Amino acid sequence: MELWFMGTSAGMPIAERNVSSIVLSLTRTKGSLWMFDCGEGTQHQLLRTPLKLSRLTKLFITHLHGDHLFGLPGLLSSRSSLGGTASLDVYGPPGLREFLDAALRLSDTHLNYPFQVHELEAEGAVLDEDGYTVECALLDHRIACFGYRIAEKPRSGSLRVDVLTAAGVPPGPAYGKLKAGEDLRLEDGSVIRAADVLCDPIPGRVVAVMGDTRPCEGALRLAQGADVLVYEATFGADLAEKAEQYGHSTTLQAAETAKAANISRLLITHFSSRYGPDQLAELETQARGVFPQTDAAMELQAYPIPSPSFRTNLA
């Protein structure tokens, strides 16, 4: 599982940064891609990565401000032109369907794949499939805006091979059945219960992706205990009043949310165009003063999210 940032700039692009879009590359779905927001120029950014647009299966829009949305019609059209035929689901606030219907109709764009828009009317479960769940919550911005929590379902633990060897069970199909949670009946009539030879389940990873927001209860709830939190830090600590006025957060507010939610890693993004590349280190330093495990997200760079079992082995 990896996170890629296609754009980290707020409001409008600058020479060094594009506007908002994030891609989550999944491992349990044969490399499927899920995208969060699609600002103008997102498809151009994808061309600069090893990620393939044809693998995009889910697209989540946080809100309908242009810097999170204007790249969507072009990206959908290119996916069709590139021969994409797999179905695509798009999730987002009310109004998203109207925007896409108008853009595709007026531009006479025809998509060669099944396409469905799911408008989110309330907080709660968004989907449950392919080994993952997604839930959403309302954030505190100037217009309706959602954050998303993506949770990987737990995997079954490893088999206690020493116990099976002592019981005379050779490696093979029997191991597969036990791994799948099926009890095994031996030739002598005795039964080996899967629960007795499986180690504890391996917890799934959790990624929380916020849209534009002031600090709020919805963001804190979605972020709770996450392995990675992606949170906006539009302004530095000295511009708290401006952040409040425009419905955004500062570096310190992002870090305070991360600390309160007891997460493992914070990736800050959505930086105001007033900050050039040489100033991002200072924004990162501000956040690290509250939450040391903070990084200012860099575009077109992979951020791996190791599984709990891998982290344990490293320890």
Rank of each mutant, 00 (worst) to 15 (best):
294 T>I: 08
254 A>C: 03
257 T>D: 14
228 V>C: 06
310 F>V: 04
233 A>V: 09
221 R>H: 12
242 K>F: 04
221 R>G: 15
270 H>L: 09
270 H>P: 08
310 F>N: 02
219 A>G: 12
251 T>I: 02
270 H>Q: 12
255 A>T: 04
260 A>V: 09
301 Q>E: 05
282 E>S: 06
284 E>D: 08
299 E>A: 07
293 Q>A: 15
227 D>F: 03
247 G>V: 03
253 Q>S: 12
278 D>G: 00
265 R>N: 00
291 F>K: 00
239 L>V: 00
266 L>F: 02
250 T>C: 11
218 G>A: 04
216 C>T: 03
292 P>Y: 06
265 R>H: 09
300 L>F: 09
247 G>K: 05
244 E>Q: 14
234 T>D: 04
303 Y>D: 10
240 A>T: 13
235 F>H: 06
251 T>S: 14
256 E>Q: 12
218 G>T: 09
264 S>A: 10
269 T>I: 04
306 P>V: 03
221 R>L: 10
220 L>E: 12
255 A>K: 08
244 E>R: 10
246 Y>Q: 06
221 R>W: 08
302 A>H: 01
240 A>M: 01
243 A>L: 09
297 A>P: 03
275 Y>F: 13
240 A>P: 08
284 E>W: 03
310 F>H: 06
229 L>A: 03
277 P>A: 14
304 P>M: 02
288 R>A: 10
295 D>S: 07
258 A>P: 06
244 E>G: 06
220 L>W: 06
230 V>T: 10
264 S>D: 15
225 G>M: 04
241 E>K: 12
230 V>E: 05
244 E>A: 08
237 A>L: 03
231 Y>M: 15
251 T>W: 00
258 A>D: 01
256 E>G: 05
264 S>R: 10
287 A>V: 10
307 S>P: 01
299 E>W: 00
217 E>T: 13
231 Y>L: 14
307 S>T: 09
312 T>Y: 06
